[in-house]
């Protein structure tokens, strides 16, 4: 079953076309990575899927319904979750309060359980702004996961994480892979190769290639352009 589909999705800024008529389909249960060089339109593309950025043209279908006209919060309510590329947590609230907002409940046990998934349960009552950057990234991911979304959109989740933290992140995503569908923008090719069922390569606002990690790895055009010769 296709959970998410875009039809001719386009975004024009002034005279510049950032995303150019992208047709994209994401089956339920898949972990899908979106890669491409800076300025390829990845963030704009997922921004339009989540509703943060209005589409200039085209449609977004989620769970069999056209959600193009829905505001961002309404799409989230239907089962999307979005984590920001630049960490956007509530710096002046405690971690537990951050989770309470994500969970829509004040159930402390649930908040602790969600924090535990990223190893932050013992810091539940600290002020979020006092955390190290890597821990804030993990909190951001925990807030996305806690929403129990049907589609989890992660915009560069491992940016700024230490090697050991990336290990933990990979384990978390593998654990989630059974429960939810994941769309992941990622620069770290080790993470992509380790996690993704399928990969889509975006370049100049259009899809350059799409396939399994093995196929993408073997694709000469992609290899030459983005993966280096390793």
């Amino acid at each position: 079953m296709i959970l998410l589909e875009t039809k001719g999705l386009t975004r024009i800024y002034g005279g510049l076309t950032a995303v150019d008529g992208v047709d994209f389909a994401l089956p339920q249960g898949e972990v899908h990575a979106l890669i491409g060089p800076n300025g390829a339109g990845k963030s704009t593309f997922v921004g339009m899927i989540s509703g943060r950025i209005p589409a200039s043209a085209g449609e977004v279908w989620f769970d069999g319904q056209n959600v193009t006209a829905l505001a961002a919060h309404a799409r989230i309510r239907r089962g999307m979750a979005y984590t920001f590329q630049i960490t956007a947590v509530y710096a002046r609230l405690s971690l537990a309060d951050n989770l309470a907002l994500a969970l829509r409940s004040r159930d402390r046990a649930a908040a602790l359980a969600a924090l535990d998934r990223v190893g932050l349960a013992d810091r539940a009552d600290q002020m979020t702004g006092d955390l190290a950057y890597g821990h804030q990234r993990l909190l951001e991911i925990a807030m996305g996961v806690a929403q129990k979304p049907r589609l989890l959109i992660l915009d560069e989740p491992t940016q700024g994480l230490a090697e050991s933290e990336i290990e933990g992140f990979n384990a978390l995503i593998r654990e989630l892979a059974g429960e939810t569908t994941i769309l992941l923008i990622e620069h770290n090719m080790n993470v992509v190769m380790a996690l993704a069922d399928r990969i889509t390569v975006l370049d100049m606002g259009a899809i350059l290639a799409s396939g399994t990690p093995v196929e993408i790895h073997a694709n000469r055009a992609v290899q030459d352009a983005y993966l280096g010769t390793g």
């Binding site: 309404a74 989230i76 920001f84």
Partner: peptide
Amino acid sequence: ENEERTRMLGYDV
């Protein structure tokens, strides 16, 4: 504290 984050948690700001 953070309007955009709140919207992206599914609240009608």
